[in-house]
Write a protein that binds this DNA or RNA. Structure first.
Lengths: 236, 236
DNA sequence: GGGACACTTCGGCGGCGGCCGAAGGGTCCG
DNA sequence: CGGACCCTTCGGCCGCCGCCGAAGTGTCCC
C-alpha cells in the first residue's frame, strides 16, 4: 500500500459517513431542517441509544452535522445548506430505484402527504414545491431556460412581498433541486429557503407531525392565489 | 431490525459504492471524462487486477459506471454527467480538508499543471476554467447574480462561435461547478461541456499525459484572446 | 494452433465496523 | 438530596468486505 491520493482518501471517508443505513436514515430525517435530539433519532432509526450516540459522534466529527448541547439533550442538525444539498443530490440519484409500494393505508397516506408537500432541508418540495416553482416561472419571475435564475421581475416580487434575500457565502440565490416524487426541479437556494421560511412563519403551511410533510392551510391557499395566482385545486 | 425506509437503504448503498478508497480513486480518475481499461485503473489504484475487477463489477451494477467491452479489453467510464456531478460535488466538499503538500518536485509540478488547467468530467476547470468563466461573465455572456445562467448575448456568442448547445434530458445549459483548487465556481452544464469539447477538438488545449490536466496551446491563447479578450498572462 | 495477454472467478485470510447491554456521568426536578 | 432521565463509554460478538494469488475463460496475433 503505497501513498494514496489524499483526495481519494477524503472522498471515501466522506462517502463512508453516509454509507451506513442507520446514518443515512438520520441524514434523511434531518433534511427537514430542524434539530433533532439523539433520542428522537435513535427511536426513528430503531437502534439503541448507545449505537446512535456513536453514529452521531462520527457524523459530527466528519463535519456533516452540527451539534448543540442543551442540558441533558444533544441536538443535532445538518451542518449547513451545502451538506443538505449533497444529501438531497445523492437521494435524488437513488430515487429512480424506488420500487416498493406502501404496505398499508397509514404508510400510503403518510406517503401521499409527503408527496403533496414537504420541506427539503430549508425549502419547499413535493407537489407544493413544484406548483410554486411553476407559478413563479409562468409569471416571469423565475427563468429556467439557461439554468435556474431569478429575473429582475422576480427580485422585485420578493422585495414587494417583503421577503428578504440576503446572500450568505457562496450559496446561490436560486438553485434547482430535483424532486424525488415529482422527478422535476423545484426552487432551492437562498430564495427557496426565504420563501419556505415565510410560508411557515405566516402560517401558509404547517408541519404534519414530526415529519417533513407540510400541509397548506386556508390562509396559505389564499396567499398562493393572491401572490401567484395558484388555484387550490392544483395542490391536490 | 424492522422494515427500514427504502430511501435510506438506497442512499447508504449508493454512498457505499463510493466509500472505498480504491473505488474512490477510480471515480476520481474517471472524472477526466474518458474511458479507461480495467488494467489501467488497477495500475493507477495500485491493486491486483482481480481486486479491481470486482470493484468495477460493483460500480457498474450500481449504475455509476458504464462499460463497453472491446475484444479483451473492458472499458469503463462514468455513467453520465449526473454521476460526474455527484462525484465532483462530493470531492468539492472534501477539498477544504486538503492539508498535505506535495512531497517532491514531480508531484508538485503535476499538481501545478492540474491547478492551471484540467477537465472536470466534460468541462474545463482549474485556473483555465475560472478565467474562461470570468471572461464570459465580464463580457455579459454569463450572469452569476441569481444563479448561473447564459444571457441572450451569451446564447448569441455560442451560436456565432459555431458551438452547438443541444439540451439533452434535464441537464441544465449552465451550471456552477465548485473548483477544488480555486475554490470558486466555474461553468459546467451543457454549455461548459460544449465549450470544452470545442477547445479540445480545435486544439486550443491538449491533454498532458494520461491525467486530467490540460495545457493551453499557442492556438488556444490566440482563440482565448480573439473570442474572449483573455490575455495569455492570466493563465499563469 | 500456440502463446501472450486482459480480464474474471474462486477460496481463504484478516480487519474494520455496527450492534447490543451494562455501567457510568451529567442534568433536571420535586 | 434522591430519583428519573438523557446521553456516553466500554467490552464483546458477529458479519461484511477488501485484499491477494492461483486457476480459468476469452481474445488477439503470429
Amino acid at each position: 500500500m503505497t501513498t494514496r491520493d489524499p483526495q481519494a482518501t477524503g472522498l471515501a471517508r466522506l462517502a463512508g459517513l453516509i454509507a451506513d443505513e442507520t446514518r443515512a436514515t438520520c441524514l434523511l430525517a434531518l433534511l427537514d431542517g430542524r434539530a433533532w435530539t439523539a433520542g428522537e433519532l435513535a427511536r426513528h432509526a430503531g437502534v439503541a441509544a448507545s449505537t446512535l450516540s456513536e453514529h452521531l459522534g462520527r457524523l459530527v466529527a466528519g463535519g456533516l452535522l452540527a451539534e448543540e448541547r442543551q442540558g441533558r439533550h444533544r441536538y443535532v442538525r445538518l451542518a449547513d445548506a451545502r451538506v443538505a444539498q449533497l444529501v438531497e443530490d445523492l437521494a435524488a440519484q437513488v430515487a429512480p430505484g424506488r420500487s416498493g409500494r406502501p404496505r398499508n393505508l397509514r404508510e400510503s397516506s403518510a406517503g401521499s402527504a409527503m408527496a403533496r408537500g414537504r420541506t427539503c432541508y430549508d425549502h419547499l418540495a413535493g407537489r407544493l414545491g413544484i406548483v410554486v416553482t411553476d407559478a413563479l416561472t409562468a409569471r416571469g419571475l423565475l427563468q429556467q431556460e439557461t439554468g435556474f435564475a431569478l429575473t429582475d421581475a422576480g427580485l422585485a416580487w420578493f422585495a414587494a412581498a417583503g421577503i428578504g434575500l440576503e446572500r450568505r457565502g457562496r450559496r446561490p440565490l436560486a438553485r434547482a433541486c430535483l424532486d424525488w416524487t415529482e422527478r422535476r426541479p423545484h426552487l432551492a437556494g437562498v430564495a427557496g429557503a426565504a420563501l419556505c421560511r415565510r410560508a411557515l412563519d405566516a402560517g401558509w403551511c404547517v408541519r404534519i407531525g414530526s415529519e417533513r410533510a407540510v400541509k397548506v392551510t386556508a390562509a396559505g391557499e389564499r396567499a398562493l392565489f393572491d401572490l401567484l395566482g395558484v388555484e387550490a385545486t392544483a395542490l391536490r
